[in-house]
Structures are given as structure tokens and as C-alpha cells.
Amino acid sequence: MNWVNQLLEMPLLCGSIFIIVGFILYGYPPKKINYLYGYRTSSSMKNSEVWTFSQKYASVKMIQSGFILLVVSFAGLFLILMRIKI
């Protein structure tokens, strides 16, 4: 039963972290192209216009992924609680 708890806690923890980091990146995106902070790919680092767009886009996708992980975690918890009641 311990592995079930770990399967439910991991999406909850990762989802929360994704949401927090996504909001930080959305509110405070890196201003200049760098190799340390932000969404860094070879295509996103080509010019500053692409860099700015990719930072906003990646942070929105990270927030969406975090919410999906939270929903999965709560759905799994709900299913386990319903199974215990039966």
C-alpha cells in the first residue's frame, strides 16, 4: 500500500512545483538570452523576439502541466478512497 501513496504524492508534489515555477517564469521571465535561466533550446535562443515568446509560452505550458498533474493526483486519491469504502 506504501507504493500507492508514493504514486499519488509524486504527481501532487511535481504539479505544485510546476505551477510555482511556471508562475515565477511568467512573472519574471529572463530579459536577455542566457544559458542559465529560462526555456533554453537552440531555436528559442536564435533572437530576442523568439526568446521572449518562448519564455511566455513555456511558462504557460508548465502551469497547465502542473494543473493536469494535480488533477491526476486528486483523481487517484478519490479512486482509492472510493475503493476503501466498498
Score class of each variant (00 low, 15 high):
residue 26 Y to A: 15
residue 21 V to A: 12
residue 26 Y to S: 15
residue 52 T to V: 03
residue 78 F to D: 13
residue 45 M to Y: 03
residue 75 A to M: 04
residue 85 K to G: 13
residue 46 K to W: 01
residue 69 L to A: 12
residue 52 T to R: 08
residue 18 F to W: 02
residue 3 W to N: 12
residue 56 K to N: 07
residue 5 N to P: 03
residue 68 I to L: 11
residue 15 G to F: 00
residue 65 S to Q: 09
residue 46 K to Y: 08
residue 31 K to A: 09
residue 81 L to D: 07
residue 33 I to L: 03
residue 37 Y to S: 14
residue 63 I to F: 09
residue 57 Y to R: 13
residue 84 I to G: 04
residue 6 Q to N: 05
residue 77 L to H: 06
residue 57 Y to V: 06
residue 55 Q to Y: 02
residue 55 Q to P: 07
residue 76 G to R: 05
residue 26 Y to W: 05
residue 13 L to Y: 11
residue 48 S to R: 14
residue 49 E to F: 10
residue 10 M to P: 01
residue 53 F to Y: 15
residue 13 L to N: 12
residue 18 F to G: 03
residue 68 I to M: 05
residue 78 F to A: 15
residue 42 S to V: 05
residue 45 M to N: 07
residue 22 G to F: 01
residue 69 L to C: 07
residue 54 S to H: 10
residue 64 Q to A: 15
residue 49 E to V: 03
residue 20 I to F: 08
residue 64 Q to C: 12
residue 5 N to D: 04
residue 70 L to Y: 12
residue 57 Y to T: 06
residue 79 L to A: 15
residue 38 G to S: 07
residue 23 F to N: 12
residue 59 S to K: 06
residue 8 L to W: 00
residue 60 V to T: 11
residue 53 F to N: 12
residue 73 S to M: 00
residue 37 Y to W: 07
residue 38 G to E: 08
residue 24 I to H: 01
residue 64 Q to S: 13
residue 17 I to E: 04
residue 33 I to C: 04
residue 51 W to A: 00
residue 77 L to I: 15
residue 19 I to H: 09
residue 40 R to N: 13
residue 57 Y to N: 07
residue 53 F to M: 13
residue 57 Y to S: 13
residue 34 N to Y: 10
residue 11 P to N: 07
residue 45 M to T: 00
residue 32 K to A: 05
residue 81 L to M: 10
residue 45 M to P: 01
residue 32 K to V: 01
residue 79 L to Q: 13
residue 32 K to N: 09
residue 81 L to S: 11
residue 41 T to Q: 08
residue 70 L to D: 01
residue 36 L to P: 11
